[in-house]
Design a binder for these strands. Structure first.
Lengths: 202, 202
DNA sequence: CCCTGGCTAGAACGAACGTTCTACCTATGA
DNA sequence: TCATAGGTAGAACGTTCGTTCTAGCCAGGG
């Protein structure tokens, strides 16, 4: 009996289910989308759905993990393409600004999900927290290469600008939001770089 | 017997309904709360509910208008207590930072609602846009008294920091979020004030 | 007086929700 | 060869949703 992990073989139906859910949950929210809708658009049957996802909640968690995977890939690519000493933070900010202006942008999947799952003990909420902690940690590490002493507040500042930009991106003019965001990040990086050079000069 | 006072205008049952809805919608979200729940906690009957609010959507709109009313009151009070030339912007930022750290804080009611109503044509979404436009306009006016030329981008920057702080306030440590927000606002105001004095010197 | 308006109480509706079930088909590999 | 895993198709479960309805209670003003 070679029954290993439940995801040993990439099932066609499962990936169709997940990509459909990702698209619809992101575009329309979670509570307001029923499983029937996802089943219908993924062109699978109810039985198949419940074979791969024991409940809707499992699908929601898989959706968030999928978005997390994509975010990690995008950040990793930005860092790889702009390794220190080139500024990967500007590359990340650029990718965010680009995302905000791309068609179909509906904000941050995690912030949107957090609005629907305020209970801190809920598995969905915990998944959100975990993603955000990863993002903050990643930025803190990168920020430490600009100015070590203020890396943590600077990273928090970056995340705050990003959160604001992602939230406003589908409520204001995306181009203006992206511009405001990039200006803010540039200012933040400039200040930290000045701190760094001021210290190394002394 | 009823008071002859004109304060009778809003019925007791209606205001109980609205305050209950405001509390529950804000704390738990909109889609995940049924009308039965609000009816039960407001201690009214279904018939009474539908007498005052033709549908759930009307209650949701009333909820958002109620929060808007409270926000306008808070901003108005902050401006009244710190009229120019004292800085009302710092007072507003302080009130926001205080809100983030107060118990029961669940983020911005409008950002949360926007996550549940992404359709731009939906009445709820439009109510959100209207509130945000009012806030941006208010800040732009105040910002113009610091530095007229850059009032608009500075106000957008302020709103972006606020949105980020409100979104993160219930996902990170509120005290750290509030501190990061206030530092960001101080920096923003300092830069604009420097621009102002640099110009008036020339 | 009775009419009206705001309220209580609770039954009932159809639709949609998440979930379970039976029944059958079809590749694959031991 | 045959058991099995993963798929299709669709009925059905019980619950909850938003909404409507009937019926009755009580106070104030014409």
């Amino acid at each position: 009996m070679k029954r290993g992990a439940p995801a040993d073989r990439p099932s066609e139906a499962r990936s169709r289910l997940l990509s459909t859910a990702t698209k619809i949950f992101y575009a329309e929210g979670i509570h307001s989308v029923g499983v029937d809708r996802i089943i219908a658009e993924a062109k699978v049957t109810r039985a198949t759905f419940y074979r791969h996802f024991p409940s809707k909640e499992d699908l929601i968690l898989a959706y968030l993990r999928e978005v997390h995977r994509m975010d990690r890939g995008a950040v990793g690519a930005a860092i790889a393409a702009n390794p220190p000493p080139a500024d990967p933070l500007l590359a990340i900010a650029g990718a965010i600004a680009e995302g905000i202006q791309s068609p179909g942008f509906r904000g941050c999947a995690f912030l949107n999900a957090a609005a629907e799952y305020p209970d801190a003990d809920h598995p969905v909420h915990r998944e959100i927290i975990a993603h955000r902690q990863w993002f903050l940690d990643t930025l803190t590490t990168l920020m430490a290469q600009v100015h070590k002493e203020t890396a943590e507040p600077a990273a928090r500042h970056f995340v705050m600008l990003r959160d604001g930009a992602m939230a406003a991106g589908c409520l204001f003019d995306p181009a203006l939001v992206a511009e405001t965001f990039l200006r803010g990040v540039e200012g933040l990086l400039r200040i930290n770089a000045e701190r760094q050079s001021a210290e190394s000069a002394s």
